[in-house]
Design a protein around this nucleic acid. Structure first.
Lengths: 343, 343
DNA sequence: CTGTTAGCGCATTCAC
DNA sequence: GTGAATGCGCTAACAG
């Protein structure tokens, strides 16, 4: 049933070594024999056993992608973009969901290690993941961090978005629009993106001489429900005329709740989200948000890992990707502002 | 750097065979030595090389998932559900996007074969994929088809939704609501789901004694844009008071276009989609749609492949999963109808 | 240009 | 209960 390199060798009247050479497009084979071997390979639809190759070359042509949840609309586009780039180079991906659970993250890593992937792309949910890093180093497994996780100076590479600046941009836009009371729905504490975006929010307040009102901050968990709950709670505590959510999913939940309370968007409350997932165009009203260049990020991440595998030096190239504000109808858009609005 | 079974054996003063036994929880090892070996394994964080194991057991504990596009909101939930079920059993998944391109499908299959996955889960875009089936058989690779593809009596198993009945349900609901002119946005020809859903639409017309008007049918490609274009074209050709789209994404595009033309939903046009992707609750108005039990489907698919791998007989168990109509505000909902409305 | 040989890391006989 | 030997399918180094 399974045909091996030996079978092909026999059928072609050559040695396994020769078959191996044509398989890997190496020189040192006469054109004639090369063709002969190729013909047999095609004829028998021979698929080399990559396990065996892997064990002997220590390369598997597969990359592990470890993310919290493919069901979070943020990730499919990222994964797709990575996969496209990688598969074009003959790589294959192993996908692991961790639900942002550190135990599952560790299991995913060791699973990838056991399968001897060539490298790992990791959207870690932990800010301090020294344990994981130790596992990685132990098997000296290349790893590029994406979207979130800790900024580790001795990590191979990371590609994050300029979360703080982006959050500043959004908040500042709302303030410049005349809103002195801007509510904020944060992501879960302990995730880097949450921290950074909160910093940006605070920076915008500070720069505009607005004092922080803790009643205006709600800590969610990046889900729709938490966006809804946020509005319920915020409305009870205090009034606000604008709302910035740390991701689109929560912003959408918030809009839902606001409408339920008879509040009109953007007239009563202006709303901005974060991510620019595809739904944003389709909500009512369409959601103003921060766009993350997902495709570009994915492509870059893929290239970084490939570069690392190719032995190219990539250290010191761990860019903050530039995000920008996409103006739609959930804000009043009185005044375009900053680099984000035109670019 | 890499620690092997031999290293562990040395350190524990036993043979590789013994280490292998405790690694695989096999009997025939004294409790004392077992503990000793386990300790060393933990201490050195030894990860067995699954390539080597795979080559010697012909089992890799990995499953290939081949789908058109993870970016299509339909698939993440399916993939997640499969992954949860599979990873609980120690399996890992390889994800391949094909863009519904037959060449890429074939490449994905042979990639999976080369990596010696234990089985494949395949959302094929082809109705006749005898070529692919031949590849599968050749390496006698277990494969369960999901969502779409051909109903092949000698396939290992398949799990599809009762597309025809579901489409009938939706169309009939619209007709019972008093709409004699129900437009239909079909999926691309050549995909089984498109064919089956079209059949359901036609069956509903027939049963209600309504003659088919070709002007009311538009063939889209499951994208937002095609939903918008559909409405533009349909409006030019003829009038209609209800619209059924073969997936939610097109339905949402259609709603967008209808609103742009000043038509109110559901007063001027009632709209029903298909899939119940998560956005449906959030559109304006929320979209009435057919729900596919994605989590359940994923779980079932995973179990089927596991059963096949375990040697359990699964033939003749290739169920049509029951879908149901979810009533929201894009339809007038005058009358609940059939099994779908209460389940 | 081509064949022979020796591993890669593990599971699996078969002896002891 | 444990160890030594063999083989899985392939690549790599060395001979010829």
């Amino acid at each position: 049933m399974k045909v091996t390199i030996e079978d092909i060798a026999c059928l072609a009247n050559v040695s396994k070594a020769t078959v191996s050479r044509v398989l890997n497009d190496r020189k040192g084979v006469g054109e004639e024999t090369r063709q002969k071997v190729k013909k047999i390979i095609d004829e028998f639809e021979y698929n080399p056993n990559l396990l065996a190759r892997g064990i002997s070359t220590s390369k598997t042509k597969t990359i592990g992608i470890i993310i919290p949840d493919i069901t979070n609309p943020f990730f499919p586009a990222l994964v797709k973009s990575i996969e496209v780039e990688l598969s074009a180079q003959g790589y294959t991906i192993i996908l692991c969901n961790t639900d942002a659970d550190i135990m599952r993250e560790k299991r995913a890593i060791s699973s990838c290690i056991s399968k001897r992937v060539d490298g790992i792309i990791f959207a870690s949910s932990q800010i301090d993941s020294s344990e994981v890093k130790f596992m990685l180093k132990r098997y000296n497994m290349p790893c590029v961090y994406v979207d979130r996780g800790s900024i580790d100076p001795d990590a191979d590479a990371w590609v994050f978005v300029d979360n703080e600046y982006a959050a500043f941009l959004a908040t500042n836009f709302l303030i410049q629009n005349g809103n002195r009371r801007v509510a904020y729905i944060s992501g879960p504490p302990g995730i880097s993106t949450s921290k950074e975006r909160l910093s940006g929010y605070l920076a915008a307040l500070r720069q505009n001489g607005i004092e922080l009102d803790p009643n205006l901050i709600y800590t969610g968990d990046y889900t729709i429900r938490s966006g809804e709950r946020a509005v319920e709670e915020l409305l009870e505590k205090d009034s606000f005329s604008a709302l910035f959510a740390a991701n689109d999913v929560m912003a959408i939940g918030a809009m839902k709740a606001l409408k339920k309370h008879g509040l009109s968007i953007p007239d009563d409350v202006e709303v901005i989200g974060f991510d620019n997932i595809s739904i944003c165009e389709l909500t009512e009203p369409p959601l103003t948000t921060i766009e993350q260049p997902l495709t570009e990020i994915g492509r870059l991440v893929a290239r970084l890992i490939l570069d690392i595998l190719a032995g190219k030096p990539v250290q010191d190239y761990s860019p903050r990707m530039q995000s920008r504000l996409i103006l739609r109808e959930s804000t009043k858009n009185r005044q375009p502002y900053g680099r984000g609005s035109n670019g």
